[in-house]
């Protein structure tokens, strides 16, 4: 089924959000959650590697910015001392 207007689409989306807030948890215990119905290894491997990649790609540019600013401040001080 397709949507006839943007309003219809937004109304549908809001209805779905409210509906899905009443959903129960899919697992009865922490052990069940970790086991993931026998697929735990696959699921946690994916989430682990992705988390690692996201953290690295956020932290590395921050460190690089600090390093760039530090290097350039040093260069400026050297230039001033040389003048």
């Amino acid at each position: 089924m397709s949507f006839n207007s943007v309003v219809e689409f937004i109304a549908y989306m809001l209805g779905q959000v409210i509906e899905s807030m009443r959903a129960p948890m899919s697992f009865n215990s922490v052990a069940e959650f970790i086991a993931m119905g026998g697929h735990g290894l696959y699921v946690w491997l994916c989430y682990g590697v992705t988390l690692l990649a996201l953290v690295l790609s956020f932290v590395l540019p921050r460190m690089r910015q600090r390093q760039l600013l530090r290097e350039q401040a040093q260069r400026l001080r050297r230039e001033e001392a040389g003048l």
Partner: peptide, 28 residues
Amino acid sequence: IAIGTVWGLVFAPADYQQGNSFRIMYIH
């Protein structure tokens, strides 16, 4: 990402064919 991960991992129902491995979809 925090909301989506908790929602997808804990609250979304398991797929009737693929079981819980379908939860990889939320990052794939």
